Computed example of a mutant assay.
Amino acid sequence: MITATKIAELTGHGNPIFSLALSQKPGILFTGGNDKGLVEWSLKDNAFIKVMFPVKASVYAIYCPQGYPLLFAGLRSGHVLVFNFLEQKITHVLHGHQAPVFDIKSVQRKNELLVASEDGTVTVWSLNDLEKIYTIPVSKDTVRSISVSPDEKQVAFGCRDNSIKIYDVEDYSLIKSLHGHTMAVFAVQYAPDGSYLVSGSRDAQIKIWDSLTFELIKNIPAHLFAVNHIAFHPSLPYFATASMDKSIKIWGADDFKLYKIISREKGYPGHVLSINKLGWNGSQLISVSDDKRILIWDIQFDA
């Protein structure tokens, strides 16, 4: 039995919210979207703190790498803004793309940053000096999402051409192209133990792939419309999915069964438009939406 209780609703964004990230500093949330600034919130007080910095284009991706006092904001313009927490200002702008940036992740053991773009490439940057190292020509179309395997040996890219591309992190050579979705792949996420990869698509399906053999383990008709994001619980065997159908669903990470639907149709005071991103803050699940709101849910897993 899983219970979900809405404990807070954060408002202030004037337009759809596309991205969120939790700070390395406990209790701090960052959000961005089709607004003029990237916003900092307190999760201790569930309150607005400040606009971190202005932006000239929509924020599609926010990322805070472990061990670095940096925040990266990927913009619709193709630029990536680098905010330094120690200096409390934007210190760099990464000019690697001329088309929108949709996702940003890092490979910690190599001190490298990966930036995925609508131009079909992923640029690789040094986290030490923020210089570009390499450009990976992944697809002829948009690269929408990135997931690095827990052992940092593989990286998966979800693409608009309906495929998932798996690369070797050591030299960024292509290992495998996975085909099965019938529409653009919006979300990819490795399981915490690295044994499988979950993909979510505009076709409303979730697919589970073995990360060793790359065989399809399971196909789940998960939502009514596009699956926008996938987020594993930080310590328990569950993952959550967010959809354009305005619902959040919680699934078993070991049995792939559906355990909870959070939506207005199910009687919850949820989002009224597409849910774009999710984030776990302990037992709290944070969701952001086209409806301009940030909702915080307390999720309890009862035996």
Rank of each mutant, 00 (worst) to 15 (best):
L20N: 05
V138S: 01
S287P: 05
F18T: 11
Q88D: 15
D254Q: 15
Y259C: 10
T91M: 07
S274Y: 04
D255H: 15
I294D: 04
S247E: 01
K260S: 13
K44D: 14
K153Q: 15
Q205P: 14
I90L: 12
A231S: 12
T11L: 03
N46T: 06
P221N: 14
H95F: 13
V198K: 00
D245P: 11
I206W: 01
Y268W: 10
F48Q: 00
S173M: 12
E112T: 13
H95L: 15
G194M: 02
A231I: 05
E152M: 11
R76A: 09
L273K: 13
I275T: 10
A21C: 14
P69K: 07
I146Q: 00
S117N: 05
I250T: 04
K44F: 11
E152F: 02
K140C: 09
V39F: 12
G67F: 02
A191S: 15
Q205A: 11
V39D: 00
Q88A: 12
V80T: 14
K266S: 12
N34H: 13
R144Q: 13
G158Y: 05
P69S: 07
A4F: 09
V82R: 06
V227M: 07
G279W: 00
V272W: 10
E112V: 10
K89T: 14
I217V: 15
F102E: 06
R160N: 06
I62E: 00
L174N: 12
Y172N: 14
G96R: 01
L224C: 11
T31Q: 03
L20W: 03
Q98H: 14
Q189E: 15
H223P: 07
D45A: 09
L285D: 00
P234D: 03
V272G: 11
L81G: 08
I28T: 14
Q189W: 08
D193M: 09
T11F: 06
L285Q: 08
I250D: 01
N219T: 15
T121Y: 02
E9W: 06
T182W: 07
D161V: 14
L236Y: 14
